[in-house]
Design a protein around this nucleic acid. Structure first.
Length: 413
RNA sequence: GUGAGCGUAGCUCAGUAGGUUAGAGCACAAGGUUGUGGCCCUUGUGGUCGUGGGUUCGAGUCCCAUCGCUCACCCCA
């Protein structure tokens, strides 16, 4: 027996129906907010992710599916979508002055991590990217979309956490101050002693108890950001309040991808165990330029599909049912039944039948299991009399109709 | 990469201080007025107890190894 690869899952049955509906609802919301789909490749050049996500991040350092293809080029199965969007935008020269672009994507991402609840090695994300708008209205657009969507699919126990990391200018000042503070303090865990030098801001979202204590009294980024960043944040908060979008300021949200500036945010939900973030994102104004492309401001987020599915209410999809189940017992009846049955399907009526041997009782049981609303019975007695039986399964009542009525049976139900 | 827990029928699990033919519920199939479903009843199909060693007269039960799953840390959606 060969089993699936660790962290890779089959999705089928009821779960596949849930996914189908969730994707449909996502597309509806994306379209309402004016976002267009991009179907991006799964494989990209490794360099794209090294340069965008950041060389020293965990994702790039130890979680990527990277390999050499047959022409010895290093390629990587995408661990996220944003880098690809930027590559796509520049490759097709889609940007122009004062142009605002809105893209969304849905699809699988790959990270080599130990699987646990809400975390797989192949997982799916739905993401939006709004390009060309440096004002807080960009954040407002993607966050109002987020809020409306999550509300509409019934995810109630959630909270939007918001922070501002400052622009490259003011962050530099904060980074310096924070580093000085951390140097004085010796209560850091091993990881944070290392992080201190590579990316001191990451210390802020360390979960170890001793670090938390240290962080509590650390200088706060929001006290250091420049006028420009402050105004940006204030305007965004004003817009969110205007539309009653709930949020909390959390000065410890840092994000593990290096490309973020100014606004960063995460949506957390109850019921996921320790992987409580279902959606996260922020502003990345310098990413495109840093990759050698347009100088274009950008905001985006990504939603974890698997995590969202775990949170959906039980009644998210309605029960499947069948319109008519046909019961017959021999080839003589089959000749009468199959042509009109085939026509009913062409008319969009959901029908089924069972050509195998079996008693009327067993076929009735089958009809019941398939949740058929009606059953047609055509036995030898009926054929002799030129009629068939139509039974309403919910009412338990049946009527006898002439065989001609099989042609337009949809009128009888 | 680190730690903990768990692997018994398709699914959820029970299996007492190691003892003879390994159980239940659900699901599946057939039957219960030889032409009528759901509820109920009866019967049946289905497991080399993850795998490989070891201890023992005897192992699903104890020990070791191995594989797999789960949760947590880390990190992240």
């Amino acid at each position: 027996m060969i089993n699936s690869v660790r962290g890779f899952k089959d999705i089928y049955g009821k779960e596949a129906k849930v996914w189908e509906k969730l994707e449909k609802r996502l597309r509806e919301s994306f379209s309402l907010w004016g976002f267009e789909e991009v179907r991006l490749p799964i494989l990209e050049k490794t360099e794209l992710f090294q340069r965008s996500i950041g060389d020293t991040t965990d994702i790039v350092e130890k979680e990527m599916y990277t390999f050499l293809d047959k022409s010895n080029e290093s390629v990587t199965m995408r661990p996220e979508g944003t880098a690809s969007i930027i590559r796509f935008l520049n490759e097709h020269k889609l940007y122009g002055p004062d142009k605002i672009l809105k893209f969304f994507y849905i699809g699988p991402m790959f990270r080599y991590e130990r699987p646990q609840k809400g975390r797989l090695r192949q997982f799916n994300q739905a993401g939006v990217e709004l390009l060309g708008d440096s004002t807080p209205y960009a954040e407002f657009e993607v966050l109002s979309l987020m809020d409306n969507f999550l509300e509409s699919i019934g995810i109630k126990d959630r909270m939007l956490f918001l922070n501002n990391l400052g622009c490259p200018l003011c962050r530099q000042q904060y980074r310096k101050t924070l580093l000085e503070y951390l140097e004085q303090n010796h209560n850091l865990c091993e990881d944070c002693i290392r992080r201190k030098n590579t990316n001191p801001l990451r210390v802020l979202d360390c979960k170890s108890e001793t670090c938390k204590e240290t962080i509590k009294n650390s200088p706060k980024i929001l006290d250091f950001i420049c006028e420009n960043c402050k105004n940006h944040m204030a305007k965004l908060e004003e817009l969110l309040k205007m539309c009653k979008i709930q949020y909390q300021i959390d000065p410890y949200i840092v994000r593990g991808l290096d490309y973020y500036v100014k606004t960063v945010f995460e949506v957390h939900a109850k019921g996921l165990g320790s992987q409580s973030a279902i959606l996260a994102g922020g502003r990345y104004d310098n990413l495109s330029k840093d990759l050698g492309g347009y100088d274009i401001p950008a905001v985006g987020w990504a939603l974890g599909i698997e995590r969202t599915v775990l949170l959906l209410p039980e009644n998210f999809i309605e029960e499947e049912y069948l319109d008519i189940f046909f019961i017959y017992f021999n080839e003589r009846a089959e000749k009468i039944i199959l042509p009109p049955l085939n026509n009913l399907r062409k008319k969009g009526i959901k029908v089924s039948y069972d050509p195998s041997k079996g008693s009327l009782k067993s076929k009735m049981r089958k009809a019941d299991k398939l949740k058929s609303r009606y059953v047609v019975i055509l036995g030898d007695d009926e054929i002799s009399n030129g009629v068939f039986i139509l039974k309403n399964m919910n009412l338990g009542k049946q009527i006898t109709l002439p065989l001609e009525k099989l042609e337009n049976l949809e009128k009888e139900i």
